[in-house]
């Protein structure tokens, strides 16, 4: 299944997207203000988003299994 790798790539780009969008508008000035503190914020937010995306895929797997079991009973 190429789905897994495809998913991994979309996840990767999706995670970077908000930061690349920020980049378009004087992002460096903002990211580097306050002693570059927002870089740390962005890193923590990225980790959180990544874990949430992972949990969503897990949720889907469980729901699929649930549906299968209900259908067969």
């Amino acid at each position: 299944m190429l789905k897994a790798t495809k998913k991994a790539f979309t996840t990767f780009t999706l995670l970077l997207l908000p930061f690349t969008l920020l980049l378009a508008q004087e992002e460096t000035d903002f990211m580097r203000s306050m002693g570059k503190m927002y870089v740390v914020v962005a890193v923590i937010v990225a980790i959180f988003i990544g874990i949430v995306i992972y949990l969503v895929t897990l949720d889907r797997k469980i729901s699929k299994l649930e549906d299968q079991i209900i259908e067969n009973d």
Partner: peptide
């Protein structure tokens, strides 16, 4: 492990953008 690896790459890219100059 792959999830952590991807997160490591993304967080590293964000950090790199603001210290090395590019994602």
């Amino acid at each position: 492990g792959i999830l952590y690896g991807i997160l490591g790459l993304v967080t590293g890219a964000i950090w790199a953008k603001n210290t090395w100059g590019a994602y």
